[in-house]
Design a binder for these strands. Structure first.
Length: 551
RNA sequence: GGCCCGUUGGUGAAGUGGCUUAACACAUAGCCCUCUCAAGGCUACACACAUGGGUUCGAAUCCCAUACGGGUCACCA
């Protein structure tokens, strides 16, 4: 019996061989300067920020070079697969306006290189594995989990390198006849790659972020096909898919760096050229005085859904990540304020090779800036969309009176340096609640500052309503308040007050604070003139009269 | 433990042998402005280049060692 017989027994009903697939998926019609990248998540849960980070890099590279960015679903681990994960991942990409040019959604395949779901590519992998068996570079392995564990334990005890290699690769010795016999008997097996590497030998690998790295050759006979579902492992699927889909640049997390030797050898076994690799740094998290990889389980901010739920604009998250991708991004962005982040030219060699802490403060800062520059219409639209999904209370507030809501958002918005107080949409309600009469009446409490004598407060309110309320324009409005200060013995001029505070009962800021608190139950609000203007005389007076009546 | 990667101020980082008495942004503090807050302007953050050796006229930048941090050693990706 020959290796070909063995291959035929393992894969008896294969329709096509590798030549067929190589012909079916020809080289893409692109120039060498147009890069092909892919985002290849495994559907084991919601999207992790590290995944998103690399997807962003993929997307930018393809956009920069006018190349192709495609999405591939790596669902070979059926045990850990989560049913709606694919949908979630698509939704997340969608939320951030990251659009793959090729992808697969259910039965709908967009692109010439599909299917883009690995579990639907089984026969393709099998053809490649079959070829490997025929040329003697792969073999069935019958070792049980227990045997493998035992071997590893032994290796550890003997302080040897662990793994399935050299003399430890027991099933390497199993000859074709025996293998066929055991398969026919129904013994379970995996398919392993037969490595020719020598661990003591090193080779130079050029990573686009890290530069030249010296790595030992792979000598592990890694599993390329699993026993239970006959699907390939990541390593083998990477080889087949990225070869057939003609990926030019593989962007992935740094945790993959150590399996590069495996991948290189796999490509060599077929005589295919490996893609260029861009191993991006891990996103880290400060934990006490240590850094660690940001973790799905411990850190809510590891999940992309966190940002969506709080209501960060997509662009804010993207830009905060851009500053990690290439730190000169910010500088570029201030120099080119009208350009889209996609117009920024990513330089892998400028990317920091070390793991970066993701800074939520920075995100807030970027986000406030972005939101402050939106028109009221835009902010209305985005915050409303967010509220429909995540906040019933804000949603009903908006629906009560869309125009009024926009007017509130517009306070201190149309000016040279617009107000920056909203970092994410879930903050909005807490910022504007007092603009709604029912919420104002039912919530909050008055907590006064420098002037806290009730009679004095009532005197100020009454005097203000009697003689000084005027919202015809801002200058007049404020001049009237100052006039009132003069009448009541408060300093209308802060400089004079600071020179001789003992001459006054207080100052115009104290008086304004009283007016503000009685109007909003808050001591810190946006421009009070604009608030009064929006509320109108009647509602302002009602709030003041209610206060006087109730205290 | 083996192998690999990394280490500039609280954070992200600029810097590729002399232009560095080490940029910029965020954070923090103070001052100014000011009806409060936010913003904005100005200033500060006191020895920030892990440590020790080399190479060199000259090193954050090159080399070596040490320390520390991270990653990886699965029929997970």
């Amino acid at each position: 019996m020959t290796r070909t017989d063995l291959a035929n027994i393992i894969f008896p009903n294969l329709e096509h061989d590798i030549d067929y697939y190589n012909a079916k998926y020809p080289k893409r019609n692109l120039t060498d300067e147009q890069y092909v990248t892919r985002f290849a998540p495994s559907p084991t849960g919601y999207m992790h920020i590290g995944n998103f980070f690399s997807a962003l890099v993929d997307y930018i590279i393809a956009h920069n070079t006018n190349g192709i960015f495609y999405l591939r679903n790596e669902d070979t681990d059926k045990a850990r697969e989560v049913s709606d994960a694919v949908e979630k991942i698509m939704n997340t990409l969608n939320y951030y306006h990251i659009k793959p040019q090729e992808y697969q959604a259910g039965d709908v395949i967009v692109g010439e290189y599909g299917p883009y779901i690995q579990s639907e590519r089984k026969e393709i992998y099998h053809a490649f594995i079959k070829y490997l068996i025929e040329i003697g570079r792969a073999y069935p392995c019958f070792c049980t989990k227990d045997e493998l564990d035992e071997k590893r334990l032994h290796q550890e005890k003997a302080k040897l390198r662990t793994g399935y290699y050299g003399g430890f690769a027991k099933c390497r010795q199993v000859d074709v006849d025996e293998a066929i016999e055991r398969i026919k008997k129904g013994e379970p097996y995996v398919i392993r790659f037969r490595s020719k590497g020598i661990h003591e030998k090193k080779f130079i690998f050029d990573d686009l972020v890290k530069g030249k790295i010296e790595l030992p050759e792979n000598d592990q006979d890694i599993v390329i096909m699993k026993s239970d579902n006959l699907l390939p492992t990541y390593h083998f699927a990477h080889l087949v898919d990225d070869h057939l889909m003609h990926t030019t640049h593989v962007v992935r997390g740094e945790e993959w760096l150590s399996s590069v030797p495996v991948h290189i050898e796999l490509f060599e076994a077929f005589g295919y050229e490996p893609p260029k690799y861009i191993h991006v740094p891990l996103i880290m998290k400060q934990d006490g005085d240590k850094k660690r990889k940001i973790s799905k389980r411990k850190d809510p901010e590891a999940s992309m859904s966190y940002y969506e739920e709080l209501g960060y604009p997509p662009l804010a998250v993207i830009e905060s990540l851009m500053t990690i991708i290439n730190s000169d991004y910010e500088e570029w962005h201030t120099a080119n304020p009208d350009k889209n982040f996609l117009d920024f030219t990513f330089r892998p060699d400028k990317m920091s090779p070390s793991g970066a802490l993701y800074d939520l403060e920075k995100l807030n800062n970027i986000s406030k800036d972005i939101i402050s520059k939106m028109t009221k219409e835009k902010l209305y639209e985005l915050s409303y969309n967010w509220a429909k999904k995540y906040s019933d209370s804000l949603k009903t507030l908006i629906e009560r009176d869309k125009e009024y809501y926009m007017d509130i958002l517009n306070i201190e918005r149309v000016q040279d340096k617009p107000r920056k107080d909203i970092a994410y949409y879930s903050q909005i309600e807490n910022l504007i609640w007092y603009m709604y009469d029912d919420l104002f009446t039912n919530n909050g409490s008055y907590s006064f500052k420098n002037i806290n004598n009730i009679n004095e407060i009532k005197l100020i309110l009454n005097t203000y309503m009697d003689k000084y309320f005027d919202i015809s324009n801002k200058d007049v409005w404020f001049q009237k308040i100052k006039d009132m200060c003069d009448e009541l013995g408060y300093a209308s001029n802060m400089k004079e007050y600071k020179k001789n505070p003992e001459l006054f009962k207080g100052n115009v800021a104290d008086v304004s604070t009283v007016l503000r608190i009685c109007l909003t139950k808050e001591s810190m609000t946006p421009d009070m003139y604009e608030i009064m203007h929006l509320l109108g005389k009647e509602r302002v007076f009602n709030r003041y009269l209610d206060f006087i009546k109730g205290n």
